[in-house]
Write a protein that binds this DNA or RNA. Structure first.
Lengths: 372, 372
DNA sequence: GCGATTTGCCAAAACGTTTTAGTAAGCTAT
DNA sequence: ATAGCTTACTAAAACGTTTTGGCAAATCGC
């Protein structure tokens, strides 16, 4: 018995059933317990036996069935990442960059990413499914809004998750973010200090916190410096990519007094630059932009021309998955991680103002969630 | 017995173990067989009972453990998609668009996408892992090269897979592709017929078949029409995004006789357009480009100005997953699916030439793999 | 040389489903 | 009334691992 109790696998074998731990145990004359414990590094296996098992596994092509492992260990080594299937903006190209970092980090710890999408109305049922069907260990949450329902849900469900960005709530949860407020506060101060009195700010969709905080930062930099609120005019690109930079820049240039434009994304800055060349080639417009180090938008030709705040989205992705895996391994609340940003000011720009700290009361509003 | 043989779940319950089929069976006074068969639509369950089970499942929040299901059914409803972690070009932004289509299609059939990456040297070990550990039902293969090793491997392994693009081999495998050859053959003919005698072609990385076939098409359109081979100069952007369009366009404009530029991607066309405005604003350069309907590059402002060949990458993604799921359900060889493309010629362009078919011998070379 | 400890291995239970192979009860036709 | 059929349910096996608890042999201390 044992051998022969089962129909022999059909045909060429390439598609036949795979070799199981029982097969390997049979071949090596060992128990399945020993195979399992040998392969999983338990100390109660002799070194000779362990070697024999390793070689046998290699020779017979034994690969543990992932589903059986998951069933018993209750760990899947899978992380869910749910995208909104929104007709206007399905997935942001910035997402690709974050994902590159996430995938690289995941690989190091043998995790995979499970991607799914649903419409905004039904988005939560995907979380519900993943929370309840034991198919993932944790979640990545993207593009948070204030008091994001996904965060509330996952906090309630008690599952590991990390947010890329902050959702503004008080209380502990895992996030990875840059200092959106500080960066745009400083960018605004910098332009003002350099004499710009009419600035356009081409921001993203302010229903997302990253854009909301940037907006607040710009407004508060004005009031803190005693400048008129109409020193900055804010344009929003709800669809933050595409020709938005081009169109909104053209619109902004309609005001002949504008001398500087701040962009929320390098993608828009590059398009905006084209619009400036086309529509206002004779005007000298200063460009300041967030630079997420999108690998497919090379800003190097504009070095010295644009003022940039640089922070790698790929690094953010790596930090996201690292924190998430940490949460999967050690129970307890999630941690917040702030990623550094680096200023590169355009040639001829006086950057002395950057050395002055942002007023404490201002910082506090958004810093309160930072780890101690 | 039944009730009480198990420790009650601890505390608040939110993080407690989830309700199993056995729990539900106990609550409803039915066997687990009946629960399973009721929920899975088997006919040998009374309608009253089925209703009671459905409502009970809802009430107690029963969700089948996915890993247990997968273990016994040997179907995961997961599809693997492996990305190359290549420092230069991790993931192409076009990828996002395809993924949007794939995710939407996957959702309809309750599939999820499992994403992983590895370096080019180790790429195959990821396929090896997925082929052998029972964690996915099939594969999506991206950006094929000629005689792609991934295709060879999966064909050998006998696993369902679909290639986005063709790898040039004879023999049956699943793919979804546009007619790269035909589209660029026609684009070239069109420009030649409209009097352009010096054309720049800004192509992608020709180690990928999509770009290779486009190159061949352009060359053969010249020879078929009896034009000198130097009527077209080909530039390659190994890194097909970013400022490549800008730089290569600037380079192409160095030849004062150039009157038309063909782009392999709208992303480059838009950048190239900026370069033309900047560097050759006074010259009249015709632009023709592939338009993949990238949602974040809106070409509508250029309607009538650019000649485009349009085909939705999102639709391609939907076709990819549909064919893959078909393969998972019915054994047998994969099918090839060609996605339609639509020409929109720039205002004032004579498009009569497009009505003439491509010479049969030309078509044949690339058509041989099409389904009958 | 003998009891205690350590080493190296294993049988069986458990994980949570689906599927197989029934069976008992209720009908139907004669 | 009974053989046969249908309906509605179920016990038990199976999927392929990990983990628990144990046990025999080898080693150690003295």
């Amino acid at each position: 018995m044992g051998r022969g109790t089962k129909k022999p696998s059909v045909g060429s074998g390439s598609i036949g059933r795979s070799v199981t731990i029982k097969d390997l145990a049979g071949e090596l004359g060992l128990s399945i317990t020993t195979i399992s414990r040998a392969l999983n590094g338990y100390p109660d296996v002799g070194e000779k036996t362990r070697k024999r098992v390793r070689e046998g596994a290699e020779k017979f092509g034994y690969r543990p069935n992932r589903n059986a492992q998951r069933l018993v260990t209750k760990r899947t080594h899978n992380i869910a990442w749910v995208q909104q299937d929104n007709d206007r903006k399905f997935v942001d190209p910035h997402f690709v960059e974050v994902m590159a970092g996430v995938l690289r980090g995941a690989r190091a710890d043998n995790y995979d990413i499970v991607l799914a999408s649903d419409t905004p109305e039904h988005e939560m049922r995907v979380y519900d499914r993943f929370v309840n069907d034991n198919s993932v260990d944790g979640f990545i949450v993207d593009l948070p809004r204030e008091n994001d329902r996904r965060v509330s849900y996952l906090l309630e469900a008690g599952r590991p998750f990390v947010v890329h960005g902050r959702d503004g709530r008080t209380g502990e949860y895992g996030w990875v973010d840059i200092d959106n407020y500080g960066n745009f506060y400083n960018l605004t101060r910098l332009l003002l200090a350099n004499g710009h009195r009419r600035i356009a700010f081409i921001n993203g969709d302010e229903s997302f916190t990253y854009a909301l905080y940037r907006h607040r930062a710009v407004v508060e930099a004005l009031s803190d410096g005693g400048y008129a609120q109409d020193s900055v005019k804010i344009y929003n690109s709800l669809h933050p990519m595409g020709d938005a930079g081009f169109k909104l820049t053209t619109q902004a240039l309609g005001d002949p007094n504008v001398t500087a434009i701040i962009y929320s994304s390098a993608l828009m800055a590059v398009e905006g630059h084209a619009a400036i060349l086309r529509g206002a080639g004779n005007r000298d417009i200063a460009i300041a932009t967030m630079d997420d180090e999108l690998h497919y938008i090379d800003l190097s030709p504009f070095a010295g021309q644009f003022t940039t705040v640089r922070s790698s989205l790929r690094d953010a992705g790596a930090a996201l998955i690292a924190e998430l895996i940490r949460q999967c391994n050690e129970p307890g609340p999630g941690r917040g991680i702030e990623i550094a940003s680096i200023f590169d000011v355009a040639d001829g720009t006086d950057s002395a103002v950057l050395k002055k700290p942002i007023p404490a009361k201002r910082r506090q509003a958004l810093k309160r969630l930072l780890p101690a």
